[in-house]
Simulated scan of single mutants.
Amino acid sequence: MRFLVVGAGALGGYFGGRLLEAGEDVTFLLRPRRAAQLATTGLVIRSPRGDLALPSPPSVQAEQIGGPYDVVIVGCKAYDLADTMKSFAPAVGPDTAILPLLNGMRHLEELARRFGREHVLGGLGMISAVLDDAGAVRHLSDVHGLTYGELDGSRSPRMYALEAALAKARFDGVASDNILQDMWEKWVLIASAASMTCLMRATVGDIVRSGGTDIANGMVDECAAIARHNGFAPRAMAIERAREILTAADSMMTASMFKDIERGAPIEADHIVGDLLRRGEGGKTPSLLRVAYAHLKAYESRRARESRPAS
């Protein structure tokens, strides 16, 4: 299979790099700055699961895409999706599968409107990774999973082909026959983690040690109630795992959105928290989640105001 991996940041760089390591036909779609950096340093991965250095990984820029690919892996931020779809559109042919690794659900609708639902797979990445100052991908834990599946749960020929390709890579590729359920359960975890760590501006452990266990559990309860309202009640194991992660007193975990706030960057407030609230309309009114969302929108408002040039 021919893979086009959109971007070589922490997510795309890790999974795309592992596929290249396994001998798959992988090309990265890069912006000029990242292309110039990789031309100099190569793609470097530092990981507890094994380091990797790939000099001059195959890459193209948007205007250089010559035709369709079999699979397009998309791992951009939600607020960049419109521009990202425009950049990889020439790579989408009649049989191309688009595998997005964004959080939430709204991106599935946007991709389907742009390219047709038949092109879109469900997917999620379970990995903690960042780019360091030198542009290397730093994998921060032992977890490196990529789950994927047809939106209707079917076992299509392209699913079998993907399964064969991903099985060779040094990460945990999992073909799912219930990918929407899997994505909703991750959304519950991610939205809970983002809401509590951004609202409290602290790690999970700091929040718990300060007496905030009820806040963590309340966030999980509210997010799970919205999933249930939409017909995707989280399974008991998923709820137990979310509570375990978000009430660990020794945890240094924060959501990536918290890290974005700390460095004054754009955030995915509407895609991860706002859209979840919208989908909960008509159900039990959440309170903690609404406060967290107002906090995130206030940050966006202040950031926009402070970035405006002085008159």
Rank of each mutant, 00 (worst) to 15 (best):
V92C: 14
E244Y: 06
I45E: 00
A97M: 05
A191D: 04
R303D: 06
A265V: 03
T40L: 10
M252Q: 10
D206L: 04
E222Y: 03
R31H: 14
K284S: 13
E262I: 00
F258D: 15
G104P: 06
L54Y: 03
I98V: 15
M257R: 05
G212R: 08
A82E: 13
P48G: 02
A304L: 07
L180C: 09
Y299L: 03
A294S: 13
A227L: 07
S192F: 09
A39H: 00
E21D: 15
A265R: 04
V208Q: 08
S307K: 13
V120P: 07
L151V: 12
G116Y: 06
W184I: 12
R138S: 03
S141N: 10
A91H: 11
P55T: 10
V71R: 01
L11A: 09
S287E: 15
T203F: 03
Y69I: 08
D80M: 05
H295P: 00
P234V: 08
A310I: 11
G16R: 13
T213G: 15
R303Y: 05
V291L: 13
A164E: 15
D275P: 05
D70M: 10
L296H: 04
K259A: 10
S56D: 13
T247N: 08
A236E: 12
G280P: 05
A165T: 13
L246M: 08
I207T: 06
I45D: 01
Y299F: 13
E109V: 14
A39Y: 02
L52F: 03
L102F: 05
R243W: 06
R49S: 07
V71F: 09
V208D: 01
H295C: 09
S301D: 12
M200L: 10
R290M: 11
A112T: 05
H271F: 09
G17N: 07
I272V: 13
D182G: 14
Y14H: 13
L20R: 15
A294D: 11
K77D: 05
D206K: 12
S192Q: 02
I261A: 04
L99V: 01
Y293D: 05
G67M: 12
P309H: 12
A227Q: 06
N230F: 00
F88Y: 14
A248D: 13
D152K: 11
I267G: 02
E244H: 09
E24A: 15
F88G: 02
L4A: 10
A242F: 01
P234M: 07
E24T: 01
T285H: 15
G280H: 06
G104H: 04
G9E: 11
I207K: 03
Q181L: 12
L296W: 03
P100A: 12
F171I: 14
G149K: 05
P58Q: 03
S192E: 00
C76K: 02
T84P: 01
I73V: 15
Q181S: 15
G9W: 09
R46T: 07
L151I: 12
A248Y: 05
A193T: 04
D260K: 02
E244L: 09
A10G: 01
R263D: 00
P58H: 05
L246A: 08
G145H: 08
G75Q: 02
D25M: 03
L4S: 09
R31W: 12
D177A: 14
G264T: 10
G231S: 00
R263H: 04
A35S: 03
T41Q: 07
A194H: 00
